[in-house]
Each structure stands twice: as structure tokens, then as C-alpha cells.
């Protein structure tokens, strides 16, 4: 039992010496007392080492072809990974970083980003359409308004002369402005005269009616 324990110690030492580069025959000379046991171990090591199979080169070629066909590593992912430190230095929100991220982002984010972009474009198109519609409504109403205005001017054609003159075109010339004011005053005076004449006619008519009424009343009194 004690010998077995000692052998374990010697075996560990042997492995250590082998690691240091000593040959097995040198080690056997160092421990003559355990020569037989160590020789057995050496034989075992040799038997194990003989199991070194050398795989067929064709196997490797087949593996390489299969893997290359699968093409797992995407260049984008690699570039993104390799640039990660540089990106961090520049700041995550830097425009270059954002552009890089856009190009080298992972597949699922590419889908999300493209869907987002499409939604944004659709929203912009809808907005533009809506604004165009409201503009058309305004555009249509302008000629309508103009036609209404024309109709109005035509219906009041009789008295428009003075009204038209009211809206004399502003030419920027002071003489035109003065003549426009004079015309305006003249038309106002003529309108006033017209009003006065109408009032006098109405008054004379009223006084005639009143005289008639008084005469009727007077004749009635006489009857009594």
C-alpha cells in the first residue's frame, strides 16, 4: 500500500519531468526502484500514442466545401462587429455611426427599418394628398366667387356707374387719385340731389293728400 502511494508520487514526478523535456530513459535511471512500474507506464503511453489516427485529407476537403456552401459569416455582421469600438468612440448618435448602422444592421432590424421607412413615406403621401385636396377646394371657390361678383355687378348695372367709380383703380398717380376723389364727390352730390328731389316729390304728394282729407272733413261738418 505504501509502495503504491509512493509510486503515485513518483508517477506525478515522472510526468512533470516529461513535461520539462526529459526523456523516459533518463527518468528510468532517476528512479531505479520503480523501474518495472515505470516501464509499464511507458508501454501504456506508447500504446495510447499509437492510437493517433490521421484522418483522410478528403474528409477535410468535404467539410470545407460543405461549410463554404453554407456561408454562415455575413460580411455585414463582421464589419459591424469590427467597427463597434470605433463607433463607440464617435458616439452612438453620430451621423456616420447611424449610416453605418443602417448599412450593417442585422437582418431583423433591416426589416423593421424598411417597414418604418415605408410607413413614413405612406404617411407623407397621404398628407400631401390631403393638403392638395384642400387647395383645390380653395382654387374652385375663387372663380365661383368671381362669377357671383360679376352677376352682382351686372344686376346693379344701373347704379353701378357711381359705385364702379368708387373703386377706381389705384395707379399710384396723384392726379388719378384726385380725379377719383372728385368723381366720387360728384357722384355723391348727384345722388344727394336725386334723394332730395324724391323727398320733395313725396312731400308734395303728402300735402296734396292732406289737403284732400281736410276738405272732406270740412264738407262733412257743413253737412251737419
Amino acid at each position: 500500500m505504501k509502495k503504491e502511494k509512493n509510486f503515485e508520487r513518483i508517477l506525478i514526478k515522472t510526468l512533470e519531468l516529461l513535461d520539462e523535456g526529459k526523456t523516459f530513459s533518463q527518468i528510468l535511471n532517476d528512479f531505479p526502484k520503480y523501474r518495472k512500474e515505470l516501464e509499464e507506464i511507458y508501454k501504456i503511453v506508447e500504446l495510447i500514442s499509437s492510437q493517433k489516427i490521421t484522418p483522410d485529407k478528403k474528409t477535410l476537403e468535404n467539410i470545407i466545401t460543405t461549410i463554404n456552401d453554407k456561408d454562415i459569416v455575413t460580411k455585414e455582421q463582421s464589419v459591424r462587429y469590427l467597427n463597434r469600438r470605433e463607433n463607440f468612440k464617435k458616439g452612438r448618435l453620430s451621423s456616420t455611426n447611424n449610416i453605418n448602422n443602417l448599412f450593417f444592421m442585422k437582418r431583423n432590424w433591416k426589416i423593421i427599418a424598411s417597414i418604418g421607412a415605408l410607413t413614413l413615406i405612406a404617411a407623407v403621401i397621404v398628407f400631401v394628398q390631403i393638403t392638395k385636396k384642400s387647395d383645390n377646394v380653395n382654387i374652385v371657390s375663387v372663380p365661383e366667387k368671381e362669377s357671383i361678383a360679376n352677376n352682382e355687378t351686372q344686376s346693379t348695372a344701373g347704379k353701378t356707374q357711381s359705385e364702379k367709380e368708387k373703386f377706381a383703380v389705384a395707379t399710384g398717380n396723384i392726379d388719378d387719385a384726385a380725379s377719383a376723389i372728385i368723381n366720387d364727390a360728384v357722384s355723391e352730390i348727384s345722388q344727394l340731389e336725386k334723394d332730395i328731389n324724391e323727398d320733395t316729390a313725396l312731400l308734395s304728394l303728402e300735402s296734396e293728400e292732406l289737403n284732400g282729407l281736410l276738405q272732406d272733413q270740412y264738407s262733412n261738418e257743413n253737412d251737419f
Binding site: P55, T59, I67
Partner: peptide, 18 residues
């Protein structure tokens, strides 16, 4: 099966090389 597993090792290394 060893050939298959070696291939799988290479594939996994390639997948996770980053």
C-alpha cells in the same frame, strides 16, 4: 460520426467567430 461532429465544430466556430 466524428466527421460530422468535426464539421459541426467548424460550423459553430464560424457562426460565433465574432
Amino acid at each position: 460520426e466524428t466527421e460530422d461532429l468535426v464539421q459541426e465544430v467548424f460550423l459553430r466556430v464560424l457562426k460565433n467567430i465574432n
